[in-house]
């Protein structure tokens, strides 16, 4: 983490959706940068536009103003370099686990890998998420947590520059969720993948992220605060739950979300500006 370069830049992004009552401005001037190998969470109340930000980075939505630059190239359409893990897992129910992962691999590595290499690569990624035992099962035959694992494998197998996760654990029970969070953290450590995670779970955000982007409520939602989480990895959830540092971060996010209701006042605006100018955050100032 010593050499940091601006890997993903989201600058002045705004989006308007047409409605019968005129355009609705969902996002305005969303600004942040992400370094390579960083794990970043975007947190906010439901409807604040956090998924919209992700969709714009993915290229699934076109920003009305501003733009996204990934590794020196502007994002203007969806592509496998920004693979998405969807909340609804979005596996094709008519394909087996293996075929679901292979669908992306065959497309991304067309002409670059031989048939046997593709097979090996698909199986490797399924092993990574511990789903190699169910390769020939259909999505309907495996549990929700397993489906999400396959979704993650499909995503990883495309070797994205940045992996976009849209509330991937939202529909899972607490134990499965914890299990999957640990898996994702471990994979991220192994592969040094850049990850953006959309979440509304404060514990999840603090546990997993290097940086938490807190969104202010819409309409015309913006980035409220950015919190650097400086906890050592690997992170142990039980140990961390007793740690003061962890609870302090947690408290900061909670206070933003519930006491200030995610609303950015003028003081916050000022603070955001200082954050932008410094690029690295002085933790004590926020605390």
């Amino acid at each position: 983490m010593s050499i940091k370069k601006k890997f993903l830049e989201i600058s002045k992004v705004g989006i308007e959706f047409p409605t019968p009552n005129g355009p609705f401005c969902a996002l305005k001037d969303v600004d942040f940068t992400i370094n390579e190998g960083e794990f970043v969470s975007i947190i906010g109340h439901s409807g604040c536009g956090k998924s919209t930000v992700l969709n714009i980075i993915a290229g699934l939505y076109q920003a009305t103003s501003g733009g996204v630059i990934l590794d020196g190239k502007e994002v203007d359409e969806p592509g496998p370099d920004r693979a998405v893990v969807f909340q609804s897992h979005a596996l094709m129910p008519w394909l087996t686990v293996y075929e679901n992962v292979a669908l992306g691999v065959e497309q991304v590595f067309k002409g670059k890998k031989t048939k046997s290499e593709i097979k090996e690569w698909v199986e490797h990624n399924l092993r990574l998420v511990k789903m190699d035992h169910a390769m020939n099962k259909k999505p309907a035959e495996i549990s929700g947590g397993m489906k999400q694992r396959v979704g993650i494998a499909r995503c990883l197998a495309m070797q994205p520059k940045v992996m976009l996760m849209d509330e991937p654990f939202g529909a899972l029970d607490a134990l499965t969720r914890a299990n999957l969070q640990d898996s994702v953290m471990q994979i991220q450590k192994e592969l040094n993948t850049t990850i953006i995670l959309i979440t509304h779970d404060v514990d999840e955000a603090v546990l997993m992220s290097d940086k938490i982007i807190m969104m202010a409520n819409g309409p015309a939602a913006r980035v409220g605060e950015i919190l650097e989480v400086d906890l050592d990895r690997p992170r142990e959830r039980v140990a961390l739950s007793k740690s003061d540092q962890f609870n302090q971060y947690r408290q900061q996010v909670l206070s933003f979300l519930y006491e200030r209701k995610g609303v950015v006042d003028i003081e916050d605006e000022k603070r955001k500006r200082t954050i932008e100018s410094d690029d690295t955050i002085d933790k004590d100032k926020i605390a």
Binding site: A58, A83, V84, F86, A90, M92, L103, Q107, M158
Partner: peptide
């Protein structure tokens, strides 16, 4: 057809023929 499945297809950048054969028709 489920919007998420279509988005998967867009992210993977499936060519139209494959998109129809593997996503649209089965769905």
């Amino acid at each position: 057809v489920d919007k998420d499945l279509l988005n998967v297809s867009r992210v993977i950048k499936l060519p139209t023929a494959v998109h129809i054969r593997k996503i649209i028709l089965p769905a």
